[in-house]
Simulated scan of single mutants.
Amino acid sequence: MNTARTELQDAVTATGAGVLGTRLIDIDREKFASDVWGRAALLTRSASDFSDLLSADAVDELISRRGLRAPFLRVAKDGTTLPNSDFTSGAGIGATISDQLDDTALWRRFADGATLVLQALHRTWEPIADFSARLGGELGHPVQANAYITPPQNRGFDDHYDVHDVFVLQIEGTKRWIIHEPVHTDPLRDQPWTDRRSTVAEAAKGEAYIDTVLEPGDALYLPRGWLHAAQAQGEVSIHLTLGIHNWTRYALAEQLAQSALEALRDDPQMRATLPLGVDGPADELDLIRERLREAISTADSAPLFHRTRRSQARPAPLGPLAQLRSVRNLGSTALVQLRSSLEARLEGPRLSTRVGWLDFSETELPAVERMLDGEPHAAGELGVDLVERLMRAGVLIPAD
C-alpha cells in the first residue's frame, strides 16, 4: 500500500488542457514552462472572452449590494491609496459594522478619477473563485484575484513591481500598459518595490520592453519584479489581475532550516548553556555548524511544506444545509466524491486536509485511497459508515 500519496488536484494533465492553455496563453504549455514562466513577459492577443468571469454589472453588484467591507476594496488615485474612512460608513440598524463600503462615497471618488480595486475576488465572486482554484491547481502555486476599475484617462498606481507573478486579463474598455525589465530579479515577499523606489523610477524612464494597449480578451503575463504602469484610455477600464503567489527555493530553504532547528531542540548539547565568561560566539560556532549540518542533512521539511501549502487557500465551498440533507438521506446507492481543493494527503493511516485530519483503520484505508481519485463513488462501495464520517468532516460531498 502506498503510504504517502499526494492529493488528486483538478490539475491539468500532461497534455496541457486546462485554463492556462485554453484561456490565458496561445503557446504550447511546455514552451511556456521552459521559456516564459518566471523569465519573461508574455502578451497574448484575443486569449479568451473573459466576460464570464466579471463584468461592469458584476462590479456594481459587488460594490452596492453585497455588503462588502473595507478589506475587500481599496481606492487609489495618482499613485496614492486613499484611507478607508474616505469610502466606508456604518452598516445601519441591526449590524454593528463600521467599515462597510459606502457606494455613494465610492461613486464620488470614482467620478473624480480614482481607481477602485476589488480585492480577494477568489473569495467573494464564484466565477472567479472557480477559475482561480483551477489555475492554482494547474500551476501548483496559490492564486488570488483582484479587479481594477479605472475611469477614462486615469491611472491608479505609478510604475512599480509586484512580488508575485500576475496574469492581467482585460475585461472591458482599454488600457495602455508600459512594461520594463526588472531592477531586482525575482523579489521575495519582503522585498517590495518601495525599497527601490528611486531605482524603479529611473528605470521607468528608459525604453519599454512592452508598450501596448490591452483590449477586451487580451491577456498579459508578468513575472514578479517586472516594472509596470497602466492608464485607462477613452472609456472605463476593467481588468482582472490573477496574482500567483510563487513557491521559491528560498521558501523551501526556510522550511528545511526550520525543520532542522526543531530537531536540534532534542540535542542536549545544543540546549546547554554557553560556558561561563564566553567571549562572543566564535568559540562555539564550530560545534554549532557541525550539529546544524547534521540536522539539515537528515531533516524532512515535507510535512511543514504541506501544512503551509494547505493553509494558503481554502477548499471548495460547502453548503451546510445541503450537506446535512445529504447525510440524513445517505444510502448505499448515494453517489459521493472528494471535495475539491482540499489538498488531501494520505500518509500512513492519517488523511490530512485543509479541513483537518482523520485517522483510519487498516481495513478502511483501501476505501479511503479509492475516494482520493476524485471520481464519484457509491456510498455502499466505500462503506456507508465511512462515507458518513467523511461527509460530516467535510471531506466528501454529494457527487454532481
Score class of each variant (00 low, 15 high):
15 T>W: 10
16 G>Y: 06
16 G>R: 05
17 A>I: 14
18 G>Q: 10
22 T>V: 05
24 L>F: 12
24 L>P: 08
26 D>A: 13
27 I>A: 00
27 I>T: 07
29 R>M: 11
29 R>W: 13
32 F>P: 00
33 A>C: 05
34 S>I: 06
37 W>D: 11
38 G>N: 09
40 A>W: 03
41 A>Q: 08
42 L>Y: 09
43 L>S: 04
43 L>T: 01
44 T>R: 01
48 S>V: 00
48 S>N: 14
52 D>A: 15
53 L>M: 12
55 S>A: 07
58 A>R: 14
59 V>I: 14
62 L>F: 05
62 L>D: 03
69 R>A: 11
70 A>K: 08
71 P>G: 08
74 R>T: 10
77 K>Y: 09
78 D>V: 01
78 D>H: 13
79 G>K: 06
82 L>D: 03
82 L>H: 06
86 D>P: 02
88 T>W: 00
93 I>G: 01
94 G>L: 05
99 D>V: 08
100 Q>A: 14
106 L>I: 12
107 W>R: 15
107 W>D: 13
108 R>S: 10
109 R>K: 14
110 F>L: 02
112 D>E: 13
113 G>S: 03
115 T>Y: 02
116 L>S: 01
118 L>I: 06
121 L>G: 03
122 H>N: 14
125 W>C: 03
125 W>G: 01
126 E>T: 12
127 P>V: 07
129 A>Q: 11
133 A>D: 12
140 G>R: 01
140 G>W: 02
143 V>K: 06
145 A>C: 09
147 A>V: 06
147 A>T: 08
148 Y>I: 03
151 P>K: 11
153 Q>K: 10
154 N>C: 15
155 R>S: 13
155 R>C: 03
156 G>S: 05
158 D>A: 13
158 D>G: 15
158 D>Q: 12
161 Y>N: 03
